[in-house]
């Protein structure tokens, strides 16, 4: 093998260490951002299951109302009061009544509480409301 041939082979080497670094950084970024999103909006509830529920792509700008088993109300992952929720829904209805509302309801939440929130959305002309059910992939720990 000539000297020139060896030099050519050395020149063709790809430094994979920075590539791996970059890939790992990207991976960490997506993991962290996904976890932050989940932490910000999800609450600890036992979701009901459904075999006929339609699987929808998560909307980027949806709003999440949570109701836990005791009937406590959460808005965008934060505890809130029913009076504040009235105000939030009113503001939302005025700003954009097409926005998707995701209702996260525990299987043990009192039904009247769910109806109250659904009625509140409807009264504020927020008709794009979906109830979240247990999803094997999304909810699997």
């Amino acid at each position: 093998m000539s000297r020139r041939g060896i030099e050519d082979e050395e020149a063709e080497e790809i430094p994979i260490t920075p590539l791996i670094d970059a890939v790992f950084l990207l991976l960490i970024f997506f993991l962290v951002s996904t976890m932050i999103k989940k932490l910000n909006r999800d609450i600890e509830i036992d979701l009901p299951e459904s075999v006929s529920a339609e699987r929808l792509m998560p909307a980027r700008h949806n709003r999440v109302i949570g109701l836990n088993a005791e009937g406590d109300v959460y808005y965008e992952g934060q505890p809130t009061t029913i009076q504040s929720l009235h105000q939030s829904m009113r503001t939302l209805g005025v700003q954009d009544d097409t926005v998707q509302i995701r209702l996260d309801v525990d299987r043990a939440t009192p039904t009247h509480r769910v109806i109250e929130v659904l009625d509140l959305c409807r009264f504020n002309r927020l008709l794009n409301v979906g109830i979240r059910t247990y999803d094997e992939f999304y909810n699997r720990p």
Binding site: M1, I6, E13, I14, I16
Partner: peptide
């Protein structure tokens, strides 16, 4: 020595 190194090198074709 040179030939052994060259044999173990990661080439683009191999990576692909």
């Amino acid at each position: 020595m040179n030939s052994t190194t060259a044999h173990n090198r990661v080439t683009p074709g191999r990576i692909l």
